[in-house]
Design a protein around this nucleic acid. Structure first.
Length: 548
RNA sequence: GGGCGCGUAGCUCAGUCGGUAGAGCAACUGGCUUUUAACCAGUAGGUCGAAGGUUCGAUCCCUUCCGCGCUCACCA
């Protein structure tokens, strides 16, 4: 909530005869609770989590004419500012001894009878409030209505305890929102992974370091945007609903538009739209897009994931190498202050430049023959007990991934991919077997993919037709003729790059699983939705929740 | 989709070789004015994930289902 003053409520407009107290949030009176709001009762809490004792406290508050969910917050000083301003007992800071207001969630209550310590959690930190009987006067008995998890505002003098901990010695306490669900166990916090993901709103404050991961994620995205804008790029937004699932080989989600009475595919890649924009004269574009693939889940795969894609006219994949390096290095520095990261037990240096290794050379080194020796590829695939897919080029790449990918600790660029697995990339001059394409690997994980974009419409049409004709269930179902037509209008030579933002954030923050860098990873719906009616009110026991 | 594992109080976990369950924290009551997982005493809290089967009796054994985790497959 933004800090601002609120004009007193005019008498008779939603105000009561206690209105002068109700608007006192900027000048809290000692011992003041919140004045009542319009007297609208809240509906009964809906889930099993609501604790009866806490519901009774709400009833007690309302009985006193007090609002457990007041309309206004308090004007508070951010906790990091308070901590810095408090200094130490030996060297008090500029705020020590002054009256301050802090807002936050009561982490827990340590009750000593006539003194209660209450660590308050807010964004950016934790500071302790000290509630003393002798300072709080007539409010003091009301402390019994507070619980761990409640949102409160505390005004008092900033000081220290005997042990030197910064403490706001409360002169008034304002309940800002009553928590009816109890917080997790204070020492272990939330450890059940399912609960952590389902109740991220608890995990974010109850589990150490979780919020920081998402702060870093935001910083990384912000860094990417700043860098690309500095390079003259324009951020754009292209459709999520696609008539043809193109730009990647993946199984799409299908949805239906009622008014148009047609099916759409959820975006599997923004690529073809972004290149249309390059045709349209937007010479440097990028998009941070959510993509959806109807495939398996794993530590590296979520059904929806975030991809950065960018395209630059007059550039080729060599320029994309540089941009990829810059993005990774700048993000590391912005997020961690160093290019060194620890991921899955190993240390990596994300400082540019990254080494390059040729796909051809790597394949030959690990397998002892050329990647386009398809007969030997097939034998090798049998040795490796790989699933023998029909598409020889796909099989070749399966062999590559099985034999080469694990060794790519990285960061490293694998450059010059076989053209057979690069349907949207331009052929490498002087070697018709290869495309001007690279992938970026870190910790054996593909982080990025880039190429010199194919802009020959006839060649693109030929490859599309070939794809559609293939037996690959993940190939597009039909040729994107509109895209071919776009190329017919002429697309300048261009380089394009895609970076898996979730995976990049995994590496930057040292998280093993993609789920730990997604605020709300995909989960099956929780069967429990609503709670039974309050005890004793079920008509016959049949009206309870459906709990299959 | 396959394999392995897990599901017991709000949270973290014990336990029952089959006789319907315990601890710590949280909650509630009482005590305590400097705690850092405070402490001390007491109280309350559970259709032991769901359904079915075996059994005199199932939270425990069996089957199926649901959810989650790990792993393999899948995943340019």
């Amino acid at each position: 909530m933004r800090a601002r003053s609120v004009a007193p409520l005019p008498t008779g407009v939603g105000a009561t005869d206690r209105a002068p107290r109700s608007v006192a949030r900027d000048r809290p009176e000692s011992g003041n609770w919140n004045a009542p709001s319009a007297g609208i009762p809240s509906p009964a809490p809906m889930t099993d989590l609501a604790h009866p004792d806490r519901l009774q406290k709400i009833a007690a508050l309302r009985a006193q004419g007090l609002d457990p969910y007041p309309a206004r917050g308090v004007v508070a000083t951010p906790i990091p500012v308070l901590l810095a301003g408090a200094g130490t007992p030996e060297a008090p800071g500029p705020l020590a001894g002054t009256r301050v207001t802090v807002a936050g969630r009561i982490e827990l209550l340590r009750d000593f009878g006539k003194l209660v310590f209450a660590p308050l959690l807010g964004q950016g930190g934790r500071i302790q409030a000290g509630l003393e009987r002798d300072r709080l006067g007539e409010w003091w008995p009301s402390r019994k209505l507070l619980d761990g998890g409640d949102q409160v505002g505390v005004t008092g003098v900033l000081g220290h305890t005997k042990k030197g901990e910064p403490t706001v010695w409360a002169e008034s306490v304002t309940l800002l929102a009553k928590a009816v669900a109890p917080p997790p166990e204070k020492w272990h916090g939330l450890v059940d992974k399912e609960l952590r993901y389902r109740r991220r709103y608890v995990d974010l404050w109850a589990s150490e370091g979780v919020a920081q991961v998402f702060v870093k994620r935001s910083q990384a995205l912000s860094t990417i945007r700043r860098y690309l804008e500095g390079e003259g790029y324009l951020e754009v937004e292209t459709p999520t609903l696609h008539p043809i699932a193109g730009g990647a080989a993946a199984r799409p989600f299908i949805t239906h538009h009622n008014a148009l009475d047609c099916d759409f595919y959820l975006r599997i890649a923004p690529e073809l739209y972004l290149k249309r924009l390059v045709v349209g004269g937007l010479e440097r574009v990028f998009e941070v897009s959510r993509n959806f693939r109807n495939e398996g889940l794993s530590q590296r795969h979520n059904p929806e994931f975030t991809m950065l894609e960018l395209y630059e006219a007059q550039a080729d994949y060599r320029r994309m190498l540089e941009i990829a390096e810059q993005i990774v290095e700048r993000c590391a520095l912005a997020v961690n202050g160093t290019t060194k990261v620890t991921f899955r037990g190993a240390e990596y240096d994300l400082g540019a430049p990254f080494p390059r290794v040729g796909y051809t050379e790597l394949f030959r080194e690990r397998n002892g023959f050329e990647f386009d020796d398809l007969a030997r590829v097939r034998r090798r695939a049998q040795e490796l007990e790989l699933h023998l897919v029909d598409d020889p080029w796909k099989l070749m790449n399966d062999v590559f991934e099985a034999t080469c990918e694990d060794g790519l600790a990285g960061p490293v660029f694998v450059v010059d991919y076989p053209i057979g697995i690069s349907p949207l990339a331009k052929q490498k001059p002087g070697d018709p077997r290869l495309a001007e394409r690279f992938e970026l690997y870190v910790a054996g994980m593909e982080l990025g993919n880039a190429f010199s974009e194919l802009n020959d419409p006839a060649e693109q049409e030929r490859r599309f037709v070939e794809q559609v004709a293939s037996k690959d269930p993940e190939a597009p179902g039909e040729v994107d003729w509109d895209y071919v037509q776009a190329l017919e209008y002429g697309m300048p030579p261009a380089g394009g790059l895609g970076i898996g933002v979730d995976r990049l954030v995994m590496v930057l923050t040292g998280q093993d699983s993609i789920r730990d860098v997604l605020l709300f990873p995909a989960m099956k719906p929780e069967p429990r939705a609503v709670r039974a009616a309050p005890k004793g009110t079920e008509p016959s026991g049949k009206a309870g929740p459906e709990r299959p």
